[in-house]
Simulated scan of single mutants.
Amino acid sequence: MTSTETVDLRGAAATLLMTLYLRRQDARSPRPILGDPYAEEVYGRIEHDVHGLWQVTGDATTVACRAAILDGWTREFLRAEPDGQVLHLGCGLDSRPLRVGAPPSSRWLDVDQAEVVDVRRRLYTVPGHVVQVPASVTDDAWWEAVDPARATLMVAEGLFMYLPPEDVHAIVDRVVTGTPRAVLAFDAVAPWTVPVSRWTPTFRAIGTEFRSAWQPATFAHRHPSLRELDDISVYDEAAAHEPRPWVRPLFAAVARLPALQDAMRLHRFTTD
């Protein structure tokens, strides 16, 4: 009999269950966007009481589109740098190192809070070159696990909006200055979503909120060595890939409204 794991998290860490749930919904679709082959089994092994998390669960299409783009960027990096290093920050219960087939020659660090990594270790079997690091991404100590000689990709999905701006900039600085070549891939939210998050029923139920938003001028000033490769609206992607024909017009309408189009965007930068 397959064992089950009890998960009882609070704050931003609890959103990992919502993300996993939505990836499972996408995987169940006749036309999945991400098609996470691990989501169904892993979700089925979790016993949870997340205090109202499912009142508002969001949309599986946007979550799947976001993950699919980041997976694509990760595969592209590993093709170019098979001996490279991936820092998977705020990894939650994401199966990304298994989905993208990280080669044995690479080094992969899954970083998240200790209670999350504890559950993760019990739910996933990962190869030896994937290292599970139990630490807050804002801690200094875990950086000792980073190989400073390897080209490095930092992937941060659903993370930076929950951190204060100075913590986000500090993480970016560490990656840029601590590795010979860096690529950074992350999502960010529009400024108007920060105050709105404080009144979202789901976030209020689990005790979290957004704490920072995308400020392109500030980011460019703070990190002048970075060159932007991509800036993608998640809603543009959702409008293009939504599998339900009757929902596509809704995403297309949202994608044409500047405020909503910018609600969540994906960014990729490089030090090259």
Rank of each mutant, 00 (worst) to 15 (best):
T4I: 06
E5C: 12
E5V: 15
D8R: 15
A13K: 10
L20V: 14
R24Y: 01
Q25K: 15
D26Q: 03
D26N: 04
R31Q: 12
I46D: 06
D49M: 11
V50I: 13
H51D: 12
G52S: 05
G52N: 07
W54N: 00
V56A: 13
V63L: 03
A68H: 12
I69Q: 14
L70C: 02
T74W: 00
R75T: 07
R75W: 00
E76F: 04
S95V: 00
S95R: 00
L98T: 00
D110H: 04
V119I: 15
R121Y: 11
R122S: 11
L123Y: 10
S136G: 06
T138D: 12
D139L: 08
D140Q: 11
D147W: 14
P148E: 09
A151V: 01
G158V: 13
L163C: 07
E166A: 15
D167C: 04
G178F: 09
P180C: 13
V183C: 10
F186E: 02
D187E: 07
W192G: 01
T193N: 00
T200S: 11
P201D: 06
G207N: 09
S212W: 03
S212H: 02
L229G: 13
H241K: 15
W246F: 06
V247A: 09
R248Y: 07
A253P: 09
P258W: 06
Q261N: 14
T271M: 11
